[in-house]
Design a protein around this nucleic acid. Structure first.
Length: 536
DNA sequence: TTAGGGTTAG
């Protein structure tokens, strides 16, 4: 028996590095390696870089990049790891910087380098860059490779160059199922249902992923029946298939169906639900107001030790808020170890709709203090919070600073919140000023809001002129007519009500009744506006 | 190594 080098005990620092759970642990390991001179060693440094491949946040990856730059003899593996980490990060463009650095150095790229660099191009739709790398690959002495070419198909397809993608696909010396899926996935991403279906029918081979693409494709287009048909037809289902179907129903607003599929999933015991499943299920519970099912999910998550990431925390907070349990929403929020911007947003929104505007604003301050960057949804949430409590000065300040301080330019929704608030407080001049700042084709929502306020303040003339503006802007929409008709009705001007209704019929616009749902004692009830409990 | 499923607003 011989003793090989592999049987020697690995260095403790390398074991520590391999097991690192955070960037700061990697930094500790790096610091240790710097002291001992180990950081210039290719093998040791590659362990540090491996962390970035598994956790490709931009900060982590750029840290790995700086380590790589200081290795004495980088090899193909370390270069490829870095390119791959960038390709999987939210800043895939930088993968090409890493690729360029490799080209300038002594180590020649291999098929892996090309695959990862192209994957980066696909991620940021860099078709020009992809084309150049395609050229470099053809000029290199590397053999044709199915991984490189599959990724190339994906680059062209995701950038919308479908014909070129198809040409590459057709001319491949060897194709596999991923080649087809690379094109199919791009059709799905772009919402091209017919093209996807045609390709799917024509494909030489399909796997469960091809079927999943089709389920998602129909679902994303709101064609839930098509999605269901596909789902029922597929020869093998995996976890992703179930998740695609549950989320498809939930996103289409078919919340009851979403829960039904979820129950089928549990009954069939085919796949164990995961975080993806629960996010969609909780969204369905939230929108149905079904607290008991939402609670059930939370218990399941706890019992099975499902990791609560930012998405899941968001969904839980939202479910509790929408089901009327703001106390529990806060509890989940406070207990969540992983929060992202959306988690903060759903907490702020929850507090806001429960009339706790001041608490919502406090959470907003906390969010900024903790270094989270508010986005467009955040400002809708905080402005709505101001709206609910009537905090005009705060709202004005937020509206003014959202662009200049936080880099979020106000959109029509933000204008909507402000116009709502100003209207509610009777500040009609300031409100109209804001409405006039918005492009006319987007102004109708604002006009409607302001019109409602005018009515409440008894400003009939202004309301009438606003309703006229509304009709001019969007003659095919119901809102202008309805507002106008209600306005006349409230003043007893019945002839004019009849006239508006006649016009509506002539233009073939109909008013849809409002609808909402809530769970009482475990039963979900549906209301139509102006009616009692349907399920009673 | 390449292709797949998730939340928050109004």
């Amino acid at each position: 028996m011989t003793t090989s080098c592999c049987s020697s005990t690995p260095l403790p620092i390398l074991t520590f590095t391999e097991r690192a759970k955070s960037l700061s642990e990697i930094q500790q390991a790096h610091a240790f390696m710097l002291k001992t001179g180990l950081s210039r060693d290719t093998f040791s440094a590659s362990k540090l870089i491996a962390y970035a491949v598994a956790n490709p946040e931009p900060k982590t990856v750029s840290y790995a990049h700086s380590i790589l730059n200081r290795i004495d003899t980088p090899n193909v593996f370390t270069h490829n790891s870095l390119i791959r980490a960038y390709a999987n990060s939210s800043t895939p463009e930088i993968a090409l910087t890493a690729f360029r650095e490799m080209l300038l150095g002594p180590v020649a790229p291999d098929k892996y380098s090309f695959t990862f660099a192209l994957k980066a191009c696909a991620a940021f739709r860099g078709v020009e860059e992809g084309r150049q790398i395609h050229g470099l690959f053809l000029k290199s002495n590397l053999d044709s490779d199915v991984f490189v070419e599959n990724t190339l198909v994906n680059v062209y397809a995701r950038s919308g160059w479908f014909e070129v993608a198809r040409k590459v696909l057709d001319e491949m010396p060897e194709r596999d199922v991923v080649s087809w899926n690379s094109l199919l996935s791009a059709f799905v991403e772009k919402g091209l249902v017919e093209e996807a279906r045609k390709l799917f029918d024509e494909m030489e081979e399909r796997n469960v992923e091809s079927w999943n693409f089709m389920v998602s494709c129909y679902a994303a287009a709101g064609l839930v029946e098509g999605a269901r048909e596909c789902f029922d037809e597929m020869p093998v289902k995996d976890l992703v298939s179930w998740n695609a179907m549950v989320s498809g129903y939930a996103r289409a607003g078919c919340y009851g169906e979403a829960l039904e599929v979820f129950n089928e999933m549990l009954k069939s015991c085919a796949e164990e639900p995961d975080g993806f499943t629960f996010v969609s299920v909780l969204s369905a519970c939230a929108n149905l107001g079904s607290l008991s099912q939402g609670e059930w999910v939370r218990v399941y998550i706890d019992k099975h030790g499902v990791e609560i990431d930012g998405f899941l925390a968001t969904a839980l907070v939202d479910m509790y808020s929408k089901c009327g349990r703001i106390d529990k929403a806060v509890e989940v929020f406070r207990g969540a170890s992983k929060k992202d911007v959306s988690t903060w947003n759903s907490m702020i929104t929850g507090l806001s709709v429960h009339g706790l505007g001041n608490d919502a604003l406090e959470i907003f301050s906390e969010m900024v203090y903790e270094g989270f960057k508010p986005n467009s949804v955040t400002f809708i949430a905080v402005l709505s919070a101001c709206n609910h409590v009537g905090l005009l000065d705060q709202a004005r300040k937020l509206f003014e600073t959202m662009g200049s301080v936080y880099g979020v330019e106000p959109s029509i929704e933000h204008y909507g919140c402000m116009v709502d608030l100003l209207g509610r407080l009777g500040r009609f001049e300031e409100a109209e000023e804001l409405v006039n700042k918005v492009p006319p084709d987007e102004a109708s929502v604002l006009l409607e809001s302001l019109l409602g306020a005018c009515k409440r303040f008894g400003r009939t003339e202004q309301a009438e002129s606003l309703a006229n503006r509304l009709l001019e802007l969007s003659p095919g929409e119901t809102s202008g007519y309805v507002q106008m008709s209600n306005l006349y009705a409230s003043n007893g001007r019945w002839d004019e009500v009849t006239e508006v209704r006649r016009k509506m019929r002539a233009e073939r616009v109909n008013k849809k009744p409002g609808c909402s749902m809530i769970e009482v004692d475990g039963v979900v009830h549906e209301f139509l506006a102006g009616e009692g409990l349907i399920n009673d």
